[in-house]
Design a protein around this nucleic acid. Structure first.
Length: 433
RNA sequence: GCCCCGGUAGUGUAGUGGCCUAUCAUGAAGCCCUGUCGAGGCUUCGACUUGGGUUCGAAUCCCAGCCGGGGCGCCA
């Protein structure tokens, strides 16, 4: 047995009894005749205290261990007020499971900061840091909350292909892959498949999966491989039904994140739960607001990054971190978006503090209109045969959204780089590790 | 796709033509020390992205390459 207790599981019940602990050697302080070894495990750290007089052989072995080696130690647990945890362990046996090479390419507890790039080059060591790990523990929690909420609303989880035959929606660049004798692409979104599923009677589906975009951007907010929560639901009245699910989903995720007190403390963040419902502001209102603040913006265009940021600040003064921008011009939304009146659409974005975290819409379910819109967007309906087939034999009114996990986490934890939110980021230049 | 910026020991830095045999911290190796928790003290180790050029002299200036960071557009 390598471990009987994790560091944080040891309580006064274990005092004066023998425990076995295991983990990484974080630090050794050798004072000559007494040495202190800080051992780190999943839950935290603990102190081993080794006396040269009592256990001379063990003492020599311990003080020569390179930092970050993995050991398992059996010893007596003693109460001690001088130690942070309130106890220390006096080792009796030590099993060295893996020796770490020196020097470390990245210190786990060094007193100098490392560049983010260095951290990513040595991500497995970076992930040993509690503050890095905390992000992924919270990520796990918010994803669990998403599954839970969507299932409670009778959504079923589906998985659609990630190797696909043609462009999902035009627009963004896709990665090409060789598929035997054919050319294929990595999916940029599950859009066409999740819509197709609305013709099956499943009515409410969701997918949490990876998407690939070959955009050559290099910013703090973009990844070439990212994770999203996508939903699609049928028999909706209008896009308001979709927005209602989205805001409750975000609320559930945010709320659950706020309960990760240990991780938030490590990250020194406070998460305040947003109130429901989120504000709704139409695209026209946004244009008007921004024009009052600065130079006019062209109607029909999507908002620029700077406009979004400005709007974020304005909404903040009204106490709104989250808000929907609704009734986008049809020209700024993809072909499958349901038109509304002359030039508008039933498309919306969810913004968080000036950053787009989700976009969705009611979709077109009438095939004639869909083909018309494809053509209007400069796309060839022939390329969408498989997709269009789903609309020929009975397709109910429907809609959905896509919601970026990393963007969400980045805003939730106020991190300044989206790469912090994904274990092994893929960006314009990084393909390894 | 367009634009801006950067590259010095394992890590993070100082350095703006000679005072660089390159600073400091962190780290590593070793020695001293019985209560450390950013332990302390001493010793040692370790670096100018590559190639060309300018110059009596280049880490420093110029050109090109390589690698990286950021902004915009687009998007999540």
């Amino acid at each position: 047995m390598y471990r009987s207790h994790y560091s944080k599981e040891i309580s006064p019940n274990e005092y004066n009894s023998t425990v076995t602990v295991a983990g990484w050697v974080e630090e050794i302080r050798n004072l000559g005749s007494i040495a202190f070894l800080i051992l780190r495990d999943k839950k935290g750290t603990l102190q081993l205290t080794i006396l040269k007089k009592k256990t001379p052989e063990l003492f020599e072995r311990f003080i020569s261990l390179p930092r970050e080696s993995v050991i398992s130690v059996k010893g007596l647990c003693k109460e001690n007020d001088k130690v942070r945890n309130g106890y220390e362990i006096l080792p009796e046996t030590c099993d060295v499971l893996s020796l770490a090479e020196t020097p470390l390419p990245l210190g786990v507890v060094d007193k100098v900061e490392a560049d983010f790039d260095t951290r990513l080059d040595n991500r497995i060591i970076d992930l040993r840091k509690p503050e890095t790990q905390a992000i992924f523990k919270i990520r796990n929690t918010v994803l669990a909350a998403a599954h839970e909420y969507l299932r409670s609303q009778n959504f079923i989880e589906v998985h659609t292909p990630k190797i696909i035959a043609s462009s999902s929606e035009g627009g963004t660049d896709m990665f090409r892959v060789r598929y035997f004798e054919k050319e294929a692409f990595l999916a940029q979104s599950p859009q066409l498949y999740k819509q197709s599923l609305m013709a099956t009677g499943l009515d409410r589906v969701y997918e949490i999966a990876w998407y690939f975009r070959a955009e050559e951007h290099n910013t703090r907010r973009h990844l070439n491989e990212s994770t999203a929560v996508d939903i699609e639901m049928a028999f909706i009245n209008d896009e308001e039904d979709i927005m209602n699910i989205l805001e409750h989903l975000v609320h559930a995720m945010w709320k659950r994140a706020s309960e990760c007190s240990q991780e938030l403390e490590i990250l020194k963040k406070v998460v305040t739960i947003p109130k429901l419902p989120f504000a709704r502001i139409t695209y026209d209102e946004v244009v008007k607001t921004i024009q009052q603040e600065k130079s006019p913006i062209e109607w029909g265009k999507d908002l620029s990054t700077e406009d979004e940021r400005l709007l974020g600040e304005i909404m903040k003064t009204k106490g709104e971190d989250f808000y929907f921008i609704t009734k986008y011009p049809l020209t700024s939304k993809p072909f499958y978006t349901m038109p509304d009146r002359e030039k508008y659409s039933r498309g919306f974005d969810l913004e968080c503090k000036g950053v787009e975290v989700s976009s969705g819409s009611q979709r077109i379910h009438d095939i004639a209109l869909l083909i018309e819109r494809l053509k209007a967007c400069g796309l060839d309906p022939k390329d969408f045969d498989a997709y269009l087939k789903a609309f020929r034999y009975g397709m109910p009114p429907h809609g959905g959204f896509g919601f970026g996990i990393e963007r969400f986490l980045m805003e939730l934890l106020e991190l300044n780089n989206i790469r912090e939110c994904i274990l092994f980021p893929r960006d314009r230049t990084r393909l390894s590790p």
